[in-house]
Every structure is written in structure tokens, then in C-alpha cells.
Simulated scan of single mutants.
Amino acid sequence: MARCSNGLLGLLNAGVLVLSLVVLGGGIWLSHRATTTDCERFLERPVIALGVLLLALSLAGLAGSLCRGASCLLWLYLLALFLLIALLFVFTVFAFAVTNPGAGSAVSGRGFKEYRLGAYSTWLQKRVEDSGNWAKIRSCLHDGGVCQKLGDRKETLQQFALSNLSPIQSGCCKPPTGCNFAYQSETVWTKPPGFNSTDNPDCITWSNNQNVLCYDCQSCKAGVLANLKNDWKKIATVNIIFLVFLIVVYSVGCCAFRNNRQDNSYPAWK
């Protein structure tokens, strides 16, 4: 029983080792194909860094649990694991806090919602309103072909009005409904004769140029934040599960560390 926690810690870290190799392999795969879009280049480094971190932690945990004389290494492992738990906890709380405000508004007679930038947290607004950040996001949206796929549907106005558009499709691929533009296709809209500026600057920003559309509209930035909010909620939920797992591993690691200290302090017991 004295070594039970050590064996369990080794088993848990073996699982983390396999996970780290999968994550690291995914990051390396991204790096080899990330030659066209900023989105792939953006994802590549964090994934590789996470894989390396998990790999180092799992190896340290395995060494500490299997080698009775590696108490110092096991102590460093527990310290690193504690810091990781603290960081994940802070990030999870932060993710829920900044993504709590903001929601799409229903449009009468439409199957989709529309989004306002001002409805989201100030911190998120500043991130997308930064010109450098938005240039990268805009490139991702264009390279992803989201609006091109929407335009390929070739729907009638009635079909389009009832479509369940994603936040990005609603905000970036069409003008706001309040602009009252005439529908030609999903991504082509005609301004009415004598059209002047309105209270909504997105009506002026809209362009039928398929490389422009509403990519620079406030509604597009709001759609990105709506999509980001959904993703962060999912990530935060997964983080909670991962946190519980890490806390279990940490608790088992503390027992293993205590066992190692007892083994080293009382050699006559071996």
C-alpha cells in the first residue's frame, strides 16, 4: 500500500505522456502544412508549446513516481503542476468573465440573428478593434472561404431570410438588415437609389466586392466575438474537466512524494 500512490501516479502520467505526444504530433503536422493562412500559423506554436509542456511534466512525474531517489525531481514536478493548475483556474474564471456579456439580436421575419459590437465586454472589443489584430482575423476569414461557401448556396430571398446563419456569416457576409439593401444573392446586395449615409456606418462600409464585403464592418467584428464566445465557453468547460483531473494527479503526486521521503528517511524499512 505504501507504493500504491506511486504506481497510480506513474499510470496517470503515462496517460498524460500519450496525450502530450498526440498534441505535439498535431502541432508538428500543422507546422508542416501551415504555408498558406495566418490562421494555421497562429495555431501552430501554442499547440507545439502545450505538447512540449505536457511531455516534460509527464516525464518528470514518471521519473518521480518510479525512482525512489528522485524526490527532488518529484517536488519540482509538483511545483510545476501546482502552477499549471493555478494558471488554468485563472484562465477559466477569466474566460467566463469576459465572455459573459453579449448575445445576438433576433430580426423580425429572419431565421438568423444579428450582432452588435457594443454588446460585448470592453476587453474583447479592444482586441478586435486593434488594427493589427483585425488584419490577421480578416485574413483568416477570407482564407477560410466562409462567405464564398454562403454565396454558393444560390438561394432565393425567402430561403435566405429563413436561413440559420452563423454569427460570422451574419456579420461579415451580408449588410445589416436595417440598411434595406435589395437582395441579389447571398453576398451581393444593391443599395437603393439615392442612398445616403445612415446611422449605421456598416451600411457605408458594405461592398459587393467579394474580397471586401462586410469584413471591415462593426457587425463582422461582433460576429467574430460571438463565435469566439461560443468557443471560449466550450474551452472553459473542458478546462474544468481537465482541472479536476490535474487536481487528482496532484493529490496522488503529493502522496507519492510523501512515500519517497519516508523511503529515503528510513532505509531500514526497505
Rank of each mutant, 00 (worst) to 15 (best):
M1A: 13
R3C: 11
C4F: 12
C4Q: 06
S5I: 04
G7L: 13
G7A: 11
L8G: 05
L11G: 14
G15H: 07
V23L: 09
G26T: 05
L30V: 08
S31W: 09
H32I: 15
R33A: 07
R33Q: 12
A34G: 06
R41A: 10
F42C: 06
R45F: 14
A49W: 09
L53Y: 09
L54V: 04
A56Y: 05
L57Y: 00
L59Y: 03
A60Y: 01
G64E: 01
L66I: 09
S71D: 10
C72W: 11
C72T: 12
L74F: 05
Y77S: 00
L78R: 03
L78C: 13
L79C: 11
L81K: 05
F82R: 08
F82S: 15
L84N: 06
I85Y: 06
A86H: 07
A86P: 03
F89V: 15
F91S: 11
F94C: 13
A97Q: 10
T99L: 03
N100V: 10
P101S: 03
S105M: 11
A106K: 11
G109D: 04
G111N: 05
F112M: 08
F112G: 02
K113H: 11
E114A: 01
Y115F: 12
G118H: 13
A119K: 03
A119V: 02
Y120E: 01
S121V: 05
R127C: 07
V128I: 04
D130A: 09
W134A: 02
A135Y: 07
K136F: 07
S139D: 13
C140D: 11
H142N: 10
D143W: 02
C147N: 01
Q148M: 08
Q148W: 08
D152K: 12
R153H: 09
Q158W: 08
A161Q: 13
L165G: 01
S166T: 12
S166L: 03
Q169R: 04
G178A: 14
G178K: 13
A182H: 14
Q184N: 12
E186G: 03
V188A: 13
V188Q: 12
P192A: 12
N196C: 09
T198E: 07
C203Q: 01
S207W: 05
C214D: 13
C217P: 00
Q218Y: 13
K221C: 03
G223W: 00
G223C: 03
V224K: 00
L228R: 09
K229A: 06
N230M: 13
D231Q: 15
D231R: 14
W232F: 14
W232M: 15
K233T: 11
K233L: 15
I235S: 07
I235T: 10
T237R: 14
N239V: 04
V244I: 15
I247H: 01
V248S: 06
V248W: 06
S251G: 15
V252S: 00
V252R: 00
G253K: 00
C254G: 04
C254R: 05
A256C: 08
F257V: 05
N259V: 09
N264V: 09
N264T: 10
A268F: 11
A268K: 14
